[in-house]
């Protein structure tokens, strides 16, 4: 496979054609904020936090879904991008009911960390205070839609990795919601295997383990990388199968 060279934030870097700009930036210790992206899941380019400027292109492009090209000049941290990232988090903060002080993932929350990272101290938009539901019918877990940022990580991990496809997005626009099994209560889902992968990948306190106290629950997303890599390399397949 050919190797490309490009420039990210004035650093010359090398890349393979099938990597994304986000992969390449990470390899070179260039930090680009992300929310919908998670190593191991198929990228959807939805949160728009990872937008970067590409010289010669009038449009901002999501680093998580954009492939490198020879000679590309990429900027990841201009004033415009920083301003937009802050506004995206500001919009999210106004959209949901994010009461951090009473949340089990307080201090372990990706949304909270992003707000710190972009320097959000004040929200200029009116809070929408949507009426959302909480579903605690599942034996081990809870979904609290007040805290959902619609990143669809849960949808993707359940469908792509666990293969159960319990979660989907229902509705449109500002009334979008994550629903289980064509809008059933989670506890009634026949497809759910109670594996907990969705809970682990959820960036906020929207999907949580039962019984966790405020600020107690930490999420662990690294497991995903290992599962997906192992599958690709067929590490579970026995020696016999590999040979034949």
């Amino acid at each position: 496979m050919s190797v490309l060279t490009l420039t990210i934030d004035e650093h010359p870097v090398s890349a393979k054609p099938d990597e994304t700009l986000l992969d390449i930036a990470h390899q070179n210790d260039i930090d680009i904020p992300t929310l919908c992206h998670l190593d191991g899941l198929i990228d959807v380019g939805a949160c728009r936090l990872c937008l970067v400027e590409i010289e010669g292109s009038p449009k901002l492009m999501p680093a998580c879904t954009t492939r490198p090209q020879e000679g590309m000049v990429v900027r990841t941290n201009t004033d415009r991008l920083k301003k937009y990232r802050k506004m995206i988090i500001e919009l999210l903060a106004s959209e949901g009911n994010h009461q951090c002080a009473v949340c089990v993932v307080n201090n372990h929350c990706e949304l909270q960390n992003l707000a710190y990272a972009v320097g959000l101290v004040y929200v200029r938009f009116p809070y929408l205070y949507p009426k959302k539901t909480l579903d605690a019918t599942q034996e081990s877990y809870i979904i609290d839609r007040d805290r959902c940022v619609l990143c669809t990580r849960c949808v993707r991990v359940c469908s792509e990795v666990e293969g159960a496809h319990v979660w989907d997005v229902a509705g449109r626009g500002i009334s979008c919601e994550i629903v289980a099994d064509m809008n059933q209560m989670w506890g009634d889902s026949d497809a759910c295997t109670s594996c907990g992968k969705c809970v682990m990948v959820c960036p906020t306190g929207a999907l949580i383990k039962k019984g966790a106290n405020v600020a107690e629950m930490e999420k662990e997303t690294d497991f995903l990388k290992y599962i997906v890599t192992a599958r690709q390399k067929q590490e579970w397949v026995g020696e016999y199968l590999k040979e034949h």
Partner: peptide
């Protein structure tokens, strides 16, 4: 546009709502 936004991306989903407001 608020009614017809699909809700996938944040700027359109939340942004159009606030523009309308």
């Amino acid at each position: 546009s608020v009614d017809e936004s699909c809700g996938k991306c944040i700027p359109c989903r939340v942004g159009t709502t606030h523009i309308h407001g």
